[in-house]
Amino acid sequence: MELICPAGTPAALRAAVDAGADAVYCGFRDETNARNFPGLNFSRAEMAEGIAYAHARGAKVLVAINTFPRAGQLGLWQGAVDDAVAAGADALILADVGLIAYAAARHPAQRLHVSVQAAAANPDAIAFYVEAFGVKRVVLPRVLSVPEIAAITRATACETEVFVFGGLCVMAEGRCSLSSHATGQSPNMHGVCSPASHVSYRDDGNTLVSRLGDFTINKFAKGEPAAYPTLCKGRFRTGIGAGYIFEEPVSLDAVEMLPGLKKAGVTALKIEGRQRGRAYIASVVASFRAALAALEAGRPITGAGLTTMTEGQTTTVGAYRKTWR
């Protein structure tokens, strides 16, 4: 199985390649990708240099153009597709059906992947992308169990890619409006979930209070692990009590599921975290490289000690092992 690793900066790309990534995914410095954060992402020149660096070391670069174009502004997204192809991208990761159609028609030789943002979660939906546009791979949403992934992979004519580590989005990706509700901006249209411009923290030495727009998202007691200020992982008081309404602050770590994912026929394993620093990238990539080497050699896979890197300082195998239905 291929190891697909995140990079938000050229330095992170180099760290990922050096740590053993088979492929690195990254995006341009604008709202065409779902990690449109201040100071993050690649200029056109940096993208070309990053691709050259990766190719020289046998790694691939996948360019994420996975937000949904706004009416009347298609040029920004179509330009990103053209520029990524010109830079030598090994694949484009796309979400919008119109943009996929554009890429397939304009660049018929370019390998295309369906982004998790497209929320393609059943064989019929995936078959449409394969038959209509010749896509080669689909990134599956993080809401499927391993048996469901196996069934989809068996019934699908393209490769499947799944997340194995990092931030755990529990919503139907590409269709979640929580960030829009709180801030007017979303990962789907602007490339930002819970944008920094709307985030504030107050720490009096004991309690850390996180806010997003007009909402208090959480209050962390002294020493309690903190989390991103996203509505989906907020702690709220309601008529039935106080607590986490959607999901606790917890990160995905599916290292123990690697044998099952291999058996399911998955082609590629994805690490989340283009917004993270080089320290995260190098540690997580090296850890999963070692886990995959152990899997290939038939040795037992041990946990990699990455919990301190994670949101809420807690990990889960998430929906991969569904026990709550």
Partner: peptide, 13 residues
């Protein structure tokens, strides 16, 4: 210098 990840330090307080 890249020894620590900022988000991880934030999560651990």
């Amino acid at each position: 210098d890249g020894g620590y990840d900022g988000d991880a330090l934030f999560f651990s307080r």
